[in-house]
Every structure is written in C-alpha cells, then in structure tokens.
Design a protein around this nucleic acid. Structure first.
Lengths: 224, 224
DNA sequence: CGTAAGTTTGATGTAGGTCAACGGCCGTGG
DNA sequence: CCACGGCCGTTGACCTACATCAAACTTACG
C-alpha cells in the first residue's frame, strides 16, 4: 500500500510511519480534479491505479497539457516553488491516488534519511522528464514526437510489469496533440502512417506496437 | 559572497557555515565547461557573474540548449536523479560561479531548516521554469517564442537591479534558435521584424526594448 | 589582412496547420 | 428498440509559417 505509493528501501517500522499519514483517497471519477491551478500547495500525489493528466491554461484559455501520470508515478511538485499548484490535475479515467502531505513528508525525511534522499530523487526525476520533453518539443518532427510518446508509455508500462506492446491510451487525441505541440489531425495522420508501415496496430485508444525496434529508430534518427 | 550565492534569510553565524564550503572558483573562460554530460554529480552551481548555458546532444549529435543561467541563478539539478549530470554546462562569456557541494548542502540542511526549505524552493523553481518552456515550445509561434525569451531576460535582469530595457544577449543566434526550437534564420528574421515594428532596437547582441507593453501583448496573445 | 565563423537577407520548398466533411460511438428520450 | 444529436476521430484539400538552401556581409582572430 504505502509500498506502492512510495516504494522505498525502508524497514517495516519505517514503512508503518509512512502509512500513518498517507491518505488513500476514494477513487476519482473520470474528469474529476485532484487539484486545480492556483490552489494552495499541500501535498504531492501518487497514482495508484488509473491515470492523471496535468495541464495549465494559456492567456487565451487554451489548454496546454504538461504531463501524463501512470500508476507508480508522482505528481504535484509544480506547487512547491510558489506554495500553489501551477497546473490543474484531473483523472483521465476512474483513478485512485494517494495523497502525501508535504509537511509530513518533510518531517519524516528529517527522521529517516533514506526518505529524504528518495524525495530528492523524485523531484529531480520530474526535472529530467521535463527536460526530455523540452528536447522532444524543440527538435523533432511529428512522427518522432508521436513515436517517442508511445515508447515512453511502453517503457512505463513495462515498469509496472504490464505488457509493453499492447497499450491502452487513456487520453484523447486532443490531449496527446496538446502535449506534443501538434494538432489532432496530425496525431491522427501520424498514427495512420505508422500503422500503414506496420509498426503499429491502432484501434482507437488501443495501440499494439508491432515493431518496437523500428519505432525507436524512427523516434531518434533523422526522418524516413 | 555566500550571500550572493545563496541569498538566504539566515543569520551571520549560519552564513559563515555556508561560506565555509562554498567554493568560489576562479573565473571561467568563454566556452569553458562547468560540468559535462555523464560526469558524476557532486555539486550545484550558482552564477556569480557572466552567464552559462546548459545543453544536451541528441542521437545525431545535434546540440539542444536546455537553459540559460544569469547571475544569481542556480544550475546543475539535472544531475541529481541519476547521480550524473544529464546536460553539459559551459560559460557563455567570462564567468564566475560558486560551486556548492550537494553533500554539504544536505548536511547543512539538516542543521538549518531554513536552508533545507530554500533548497527545495530552488529545485522546484527549475521545474516551473522547465514547464513554462514546455508551454512556450508546444503552443507558440516564432514571434511569440522570441518575444517571450526577450521578456524573460528583461525580467531576470530587473531582478539583478540591472536595466530591463537594454539587454546584452550573451549567447549566439544559433543557441537562441536551439533553445526555442527554431532555426537561426527565423530568429534573425523575427528580430528584424520586431525592430521594423519599433518594438526593439537590435544591434547584434545588444537589444533595446522600446515597447515592452506591445512585446508582452505579442508574446501572450494571438499573432499580429 | 585573410580565413573562418556568425549573422542577415532572399528565393524556394514542405511539414504540418487550417478548414471542412464525414463516420463511428454513446447517451438520451420517444 | 430505434431515432436523434453531440462528441471524437479520421480523411481530404488547401494554405501558411517556418525550414531549407544559397549567397552576401560582417565580425573576430590568427
């Protein structure tokens, strides 16, 4: 339980302390908010099952998706700098999350160095993930962006011991396109093209990766 | 000194402890490396004077600039997650930096809660900066990207109590274009266009902002 | 000074955006 | 049970913002 939320190399007693204050919230409905932009920062969250997207709104009110979070992943760090969440986070499907109050986590970190260290790793992983996305957005074609997203999902599913070839995308095409800085039409066309090349089998939100090797080549190397 | 490196609300004695281990390295030459990708993570760095860029190389060996750092700003967090720097950081001009060993910073955080809190803020600011860049890259035109960069520089210069209208860009057009996901030519043309509209006065790396208001409008609202 | 690297400007090409139409899916209501 | 309307996804025709290619120009430096 707490194990799933914060998979630490800590002993039984320590894990018990952790469990004490982690709130296992009741499942969220699809589209239900975890927190919204501007709200006071109190906690970070771990996805237990289901999935979450985070996004912000630009000056025109258009939605910019900034992240997708799958089981085992942590979100909410964006609130720490200014004591209020910068993004809004909502469930993409029926989802359960653990709420981890940041104050408590800090206190516990003081008592248990392993936890403090782990927390730092978690935050900095968010930095690395964001920088990978920056590199993807700045320098790559539509095909490369879409292929990279699929591979990222594949890897993250593998980490959950789930099939890395048969993926269910919990988000809409429009959410994908926002995340990748493309339009819905382009995402749709690219998926079609990849299917025609027999790299994928696409069935609405169900994607089967037929040739991961080729997909990786396409994601990282120059086009065609 | 230490004050400049880590401007904390700490008392004299505490600041002394800080100063003990902060290394004030001798000035770096232009193009000199602070750390390089793959190197073991040991320290974060604060820019004291001059400026620094961080970048990574993609599979083709093309450089992707991930950040520019000005006096008072901290860089190097990208090494924390995997205990090795993901980016390479080099001085853009003659630059002096403070090296702050992370181990020591952690220890000091244990002793002085204010420092620990401050460190967390610093890291999470990097997250917020990265996410702002993601939003910029994903959803905006070339004009908006360039205008946003100039405004960002303007704001950061203001924080240093320097003129927010007369800026000296320490990086090349090519570095700007990599950072913004554009080509050199486009950056050059956009700067030209903004000058023609009398929003800027461009003289190679010297930029004067003539109409900040209009620039902000242009950066955030729909084109034209 | 001469060479190389950075910047600007112009001409042309194209990836992907925009606009429009259609088809599938699902919930609601008769 | 079927009819209808709205939303999502796909597909096609077209167009534009930016990339690419090319050349002159400017600056930095031996």
């Amino acid at each position: 339980m707490g194990n799933l939320c914060l998979p630490l190399a800590v002993d039984e007693g320590e894990r018990h302390k952790l469990d004490q204050f982690i709130e296992h919230k009741k499942p969220l409905q699809p589209r239900e908010k975890v927190f919204h932009s501007g709200e006071a920062f109190t906690s970070i969250y771990a996805v237990r099952s289901g999935s979450v997207k985070s996004f912000c709104l630009d000056s025109e009110g258009r939605e910019q998706v900034t992240g997708f979070y799958l089981p085992g992943e942590i979100f909410g760090w964006d609130g720490l700098a200014d004591d209020q969440y910068q993004n809004t986070a909502i469930a993409l499907e029926t989802t359960s999350v653990c709420e981890i109050p940041y104050e408590k986590l800090e206190q516990l970190g003081d008592a248990i160095p392993a936890i403090k260290k782990y927390v730092m790793k978690l935050i900095s992983r968010e930095i690395n993930a964001d920088q990978k996305l920056i590199a993807l957005l700045a320098g790559h074609s539509a095909q490369q962006k879409v292929a990279s997203l699929l591979l990222s999902f594949s890897d993250r599913l593998a980490q959950q011991k789930r099939s890395p070839t048969r993926l269910w995308l919990p988000m809409s095409r429009s959410e994908i396109s926002s995340y990748l800085g493309l339009t819905v039409e382009t995402v749709s066309r690219v998926l079609g093209a990849l299917q025609k090349k027999n790299l994928l089998k696409v069935n609405k939100k169900e994607i089967e990766i037929l040739d991961k090797q080729a997909l990786q080549t396409l994601a990282t190397s120059a086009d065609e």
